[in-house]
């Protein structure tokens, strides 16, 4: 199955509210980073938490975000980064308008 994003691509994590078992921490929503690696597909936890498993698997990615992009007052070296896993439906290409995408 094809993947929407490739390693190294700049992406923006969607900034939206969502109830339930969401694995996208609030502190990274609306932030931009790069795809660190493409991971396999996994059951969508937002559906799995309610017992809906079949056909809900989604692509998972690791995204690398500069600490200075997360925290404007970050006082460590500019190279410090944070990496975490984001499901495809929470990602948008960073070079498009923020309202576009999932």
């Amino acid at each position: 199955m094809s993947t929407r994003f490739v390693e190294g691509q700049r992406v923006r994590i969607a900034d939206r509210d969502a109830p339930g078992h969401v694995r996208t921490p609030v502190y990274v929503r609306g932030k931009e980073g790069r795809i660190e690696r493409v991971l396999p597909r996994f059951l969508n936890p937002e559906r799995e938490a309610y017992g809906v498993n079949e056909g809900t698997d989604v692509r998972l990615y690791r995204v690398r975000i500069e600490q200075s992009a997360l925290w404007p007052d970050y006082d460590g070296p500019a190279d410090d980064v944070l990496e975490l896993e984001i499901y495809e439906h929470w990602l948008e290409p960073a070079d498009h308008s923020p309202t576009e995408g999932a």
Partner: peptide
């Protein structure tokens, strides 16, 4: 040291 990059890994999903 400042010359060493810190990479924090938030273990938030499947890995």
């Amino acid at each position: 040291p400042d010359g060493v990059t810190i990479r924090v890994h938030d273990s938030n999903a499947n890995m």
